[in-house]
Write a protein that binds this DNA or RNA. Structure first.
Ligand SMILES: [Mg+2]
Length: 285
DNA sequence: GTCGTACCACGG
DNA sequence: CGTGGTACGA
């Protein structure tokens, strides 16, 4: 049993790191890579399991890392983050097994609503192997390259219906191990390489670096995170829009401050800001 | 570098 | 009308 102070499974799968986990009678179920992961709610914590690989969930949740220690270190670096740490103390940064799944999932996120992101990633996933009813292994890059723009557009993908097969073809041209091979590069080099892909800019590249390539110093800056980081670390940009050069500047400051905790710190900021944004937009209608 | 603009679809 | 952006030209 994983105690609540070490794991808030709800927060993990609702904080925009993965998009295909579903509630069950017991708790949650979803696919990561080639494994089905199930989390069962028990008093004071969670019981997590995975199949066929019984250990897959451990890497996914980075369960070997002590969250108390991580929170303590983040708090000492930036006390202004403490309220965010305390709001979701069990929030963890996830490590997805497949860089390709990460790339194509986050390609669906740009300038998009969560609800449509879920719908789109589900549609892509449905082209893969069904592990269990309603739970699919994300399709191969070959399969995605084979999917027609017309079919995707017919299923509500809009202009991403063109981007997704185009990126898939580009990835194939670069050769089989290219994506995973980025893990061996320095973080900034990996990010720069990803940015060369059509439809992939700094933010998406950082998402792939963090969730798919497992760089702990990667901290995606989206519109929500930007508001907090600009206010804290670049007050002059407080009301300025997020631009590529400002992204690089503030992302560098953030990384220099948090080091290999940048990814974790970012996740707490994002989920807190995202939740308050959701609350705000829900109540006004 | 910055700024404005288009981009698909669709929830709010 | 804006969305967990990106790309392009001025
Ligand atoms: Mg690009």
């Amino acid at each position: 049993m994983i105690p609540d102070e070490q794991l808030d499974f709800d927060a993990c799968v609702l904080s925009g790191q993965v998009f295909r986990f579903k509630r069950t009678d017991e708790g949650w179920a979803g696919v990561d890579g080639t494994n089905l992961i199930k989390a069962k709610r028990v008093p004071g914590g969670w019981e997590v399991e995975s199949r066929p690989n019984r250990d897959a969930w451990k890497a996914f949740l980075q369960i070997d890392r002590d969250l108390l220690d991580i929170r303590r270190r983040i708090a000492s670096i930036e006390p202004r983050l403490i309220p965010m740490l305390d709001t979701f103390p069990g929030l963890r940064t996830l490590r997805l097994a497949s860089p390709a799944e990460t790339l194509f999932s986050f390609l669906c996120t740009a300038n998009n609503h969560m609800s449509r992101i879920v719908r789109m990633t589900e549609f892509l996933a449905s082209k893969g192997e069904e592990l269990e009813a309603d739970h699919y292994i994300f399709p191969s890059v070959v399969r995605l390259a084979d999917t027609s723009e017309q079919e995707l557009r017919a299923n509500g993908f809009g202009y991403r219906g063109a981007t997704i097969p185009a990126v898939a073809k580009t990835v194939l041209e670069k050769g089989g191990g290219w994506l995973k091979g980025l893990k061996t590069l320095d973080y900034l080099d990996a990010r720069a390489d990803l940015c060369r892909l059509p439809g992939v800019g700094l933010k998406l590249a950082d998402c792939v670096c963090l969730f798919g390539l497992h760089f702990d110093e990667a901290a995606p800056i989206d519109t929500h995170v930007w508001k907090t980081l600009a206010e804290w670390y670049a007050p002059g940009y407080r009301h300025a829009p997020l631009s590529p050069s400002r992204y690089v500047e503030v992302s560098t400051l953030f990384r220099e401050r948090f080091g290999d905790l940048a990814a974790w710190a970012q996740q707490y900021v994002f989920y807190n800001r995202y939740i308050s944004y959701r609350t705000r937009t829900v109540t006004q209608v």
